[in-house]
Write a protein that binds this DNA or RNA. Structure first.
Lengths: 263, 263
DNA sequence: CAGGTAGTGCGCGATTCGTGCAATGGTGCG
DNA sequence: CGCACCATTGCACGAATCGCGCACTACCTG
């Protein structure tokens, strides 16, 4: 606390808050030998800088900023994704090995899966950071990460390491995310590297499910496509355009329309 | 909001808080058509259930509970780990490919690395979930995850997938964590599976650094050991017992003692 | 129909928050 | 060396928030 204690004290506050998980104004003012007023001022500054979050009697560490964008995407069409996730989890049976692709819909699936306690001895292979995080430390589920270079945007694993990992695995079911889905072209992504990997994933699965809510059907926002296996199932929700759904069924694709639950 | 809106409303509160990141009491009471009192009561219940965290004027999503234990471990001997991390980062040069083992000390290293802006074109291979999370979305750093089964306790990748991934890589420097270090026996871990993997990591690195603060020196809490390469460097801090340090130097191990910084 | 349970709105005292104001200490310039 | 200047801190006061008790309603149950 020698020369300019202000900056040092703020670092110390951040440290205490992030390590203990919660630091009260009283504790801080006592521990650092300054008035509660000063602590409040510090907390205001640190909150403005985005270094921690303010609570009623003190401060707590901030939720990881990278999760924010994901939460937001998960929030869009939430009920649709929730419905799709519930249907998907309902077809999974104990003892199976399943693949979870990266994406917000598959993350919703992971969250539902975590809370569905009736499944045991499940092995879940995750291709994304967020799905892995959602399932970490879930009893009865072995989580296996694909590995590879971490694609900044989608928090997904890509690259040769991911490809070679897939070559050593196979799955009872693969749940694929998509930027958009087309009846004949299949899964559309922004990145070619991504689509190649998705093809490999699907080729190793006994059955492939593409989870995509209504708004993703029939669009072609990008120009990288993943070739689909001969048989696959599209899981969408009741917001899907019946015409679009019909187009998929005409192409021989099994289509499941998940109902939004009553609650 | 038909029959028993209470439960539904609370789910909705959780949803809004987790998706928007922050929900104020006023917004919630307005959006849900109930008094601020009721919202407060709900927030109290939900906080007690551990479903979200209370802030001054509202609520926010909870920091992931798995991070809590890590934060705590990082908090123990914080200054020591910080000093070690700073020294370690100072030897890294632009363009290198480095390996970061799992563990709290290596996570501290990752955090320092993230804030050290003067390095470019770095490739960091991470063997743990926390180190990966700390480096995600850092400019100038390619993050590569090892992959494999996620060990619940240490949040580390283990198993055949991790081993085969390592076989395809090599590193300029490997920074290894350890439960404890011994001058002749090397790295001690709770798990044999873990030690085998660590040996493989070190065998692929041009140079191996073991980052371990003073308290970890010379102990033998478990009975699984990783055989060390012929040359390796122990990076510890000034809290290390000089006698223990001497033992390492006698065994031909290079020992770096990181000074705790002045601030 | 009586009784119990859960939920809600309202109002009050207690706590906490934010800010203006004066005092202190360190810094730079003439 | 003197002096103006700036940042920081402590203190006090008005404002906002919080927690809780109380009364009322709705619903289920015996």
């Amino acid at each position: 606390m020698a020369r300019d204690g202000a900056q040092t004290r703020r670092s110390e506050i951040v440290r205490l808050a992030t390590t203990t998980g919660l630091a009260s104004v009283d504790e801080l003012s006592d521990h650092l030998g300054v008035t509660a007023s000063t602590i409040r001022r510090d907390l205001a500054k640190l909150t403005a800088q985005g270094k921690l979050a303010r609570t009623y009697g003190g401060a707590m560490p901030l939720t990881h900023p990278t999760e924010a964008s994901l939460r937001q995407r998960l929030g869009e069409a939430f009920t649709a994704k929730q419905a799709i996730a519930r249907w998907a989890v309902s077809v999974i049976e104990s003892g199976e090995t399943i693949l979870l692709d990266a994406g917000s819909t598959t993350t919703a699936l992971a969250q539902v899966l975590k809370d569905a306690g009736d499944l045991t001895e499940l092995t879940v292979v995750t291709a994304g950071l967020s799905t892995m995080g959602a399932l970490a430390e879930t009893d009865g589920i072995d989580v296996i990460a694909l590995g590879g270079r971490l694609r900044t945007m989608s928090q997904a694993f890509v690259g040769p390491l991911a490809e070679s990992a897939i070559a050593r695995l196979s799955f009872d079911r693969a749940f694929m995310g998509a930027d958009s889905v087309h009846p004949e072209r299949g899964i559309c992504e922004a990145d070619l590297e991504q689509t190649l990997l998705k093809e490999l994933m699907m080729s190793r699965a006994a059955h492939t499910y593409v989870v995509a809510h209504g708004a993703k059907l029939g669009k072609s926002p990008f120009h990288a496509w993943a070739v689909m296996p001969p048989r696959w199932t599209l899981v969408t929700d009741e917001s899907a355009d019946p015409v679009a759904v019909h187009a998929f069924r005409d192409s021989g694709v099994e289509v499941i329309i998940a109902r939004h639950s009553a609650d």
